[in-house]
Nucleic acid binder design. Structure first.
Lengths: 219, 219
DNA sequence: GTTGTTGGCCAACGCCTGTTGACATCATCG
DNA sequence: CGATGATGTCAACAGGCGTTGGCCAACAAC
């Protein structure tokens, strides 16, 4: 298995500086060569997994993208499943929601979600995860884990500890947005610009976060 | 290609009565034998596709479930893709929303959606479609089609013709529910009983259908 | 009774898959 | 220099896949 932290994050193949464990400096500003190729492989894997999901992605195709032999992929990652794990590193980078005034909370959440998906087009990790989780049990478990360790705590901090149920429903809405906009690309949803999405969806999220006390059919 | 109607519905393998084209009556109350086995195959295919998605489902496995030779599947349906088409027949059975008083519209929509998913456990068609659409372009197109021919018109009838954008956002919410509850089975969502889901989500749908005129940050 | 059609099984083809192990290359260090 | 371990290539394996074509039994039509 890969080294993975408890919150569902996995270390990327890139290394912060050029120092190696025995103290030697190597080529400067780049880690060992194997780390570089490992990173190339992970990047290629993410693209493939994101575009086609787990099953349709082949190790041979990833290796071709990375311009390397398929057997190297196996040597570095052990198996397709473990490579998949390595490609699944996700950090939602949730902001501190307690600093947000409650009446702007839903807007901030929706906008952050959009930013996270559309801000860095090279970051396919979320796409990988969602596309695969639908058919792959391992990826689904990872989503459970991310929800439990990142989303639920962040919302609980802002709304109080009894918010777990409501946090899940907010997830429902955001994942629905992701599915229709990025996976299915339903034209009516995919065509909206981020501002329009935020404006339209924030009130709905608001209705979950701060439910009106009682709808009362006929007062 | 299979014979398919324009709204995305495909005829089931079952035949309404026992008459055959040349006028002979055959065994009565059941169609031709081939129609029966075709129906068995489609049923098995639906279960497999629903449980594992398109790519992981093999013709051999479907044939084994149907207790028949894999080559028969090919003979009857031509290819795996065409069998998939046959398994994708969907009729959302949307009620006439114009008969619903506007203030109960969101509640009715959410409840109908839950009924449709959970009412008949043997009807896997929706699960097939959603699970596959995430990685299969053909299935995604089918969802586009169903949205355009079934969902959008029904909502437009109730809300007026300018409702297309809002209809899509409602879809976003409902598909989000389906993904978290039936595909990912996020515990916090999957554990809720249908009444709780309706109560929690209807106000959010309401916020889309009848947006408050202006949120006005500081009045 | 012969013929043709229908429903079905069996064995195989060619291809692609994840995976493995033997061999080449190269840098590093004694 | 030679040794050693990391890095990478090549060729192959075994198994599963969708798909094909040939053969057989049952049965209706002539």
């Amino acid at each position: 298995m890969m080294a993975s932290r408890q919150d569902g994050t996995v270390q990327d193949g890139t290394v912060p500086d050029g120092t190696v464990q025995d103290g030697t400096v190597q080529d400067a500003a780049q880690g060992k060569r194997s780390d570089r190729t490992k990173a190339v492989i992970v990047r290629a894997a993410r693209e493939r997994f994101a575009a086609h999901g787990y099953e349709r992605t082949t190790i041979r195709a990833i290796a071709a993208d990375a311009e390397i032999d398929p057997s190297m992929v196996m040597r570095y990652f052990g198996s397709k499943e473990q490579l998949f794990d390595a490609a699944l590193s996700i950090d939602l980078r949730l902001p501190d929601l307690t600093a947000v005034p409650p009446e702007r909370l839903s807007e901030v959440i929706v906008r952050h979600f959009l930013d996270r998906w559309e801000g860095d087009p090279a970051d396919d990790a979320l796409l990988v995860l969602l596309r695969s989780a639908v058919t792959n049990e391992r990826a689904a478990q990872r989503i459970h884990q991310i929800f439990g360790t990142q989303v639920a705590p962040a919302l609980a901090a802002a709304l109080g500890p009894e918010a777990a149920g409501r946090a899940a429903l907010v997830c429902t809405q955001l994942l629905g947005l992701a599915v229709t906009r990025y996976l299915l690309r339903l034209p009516a949803v995919a065509a909206l610009d981020p501002d329009a999405v935020t404006a339209a969806l924030a009130p709905a999220v608001e209705a979950i976060l701060h439910p009106r006390p009682r709808p009362r059919p006929q007062p």
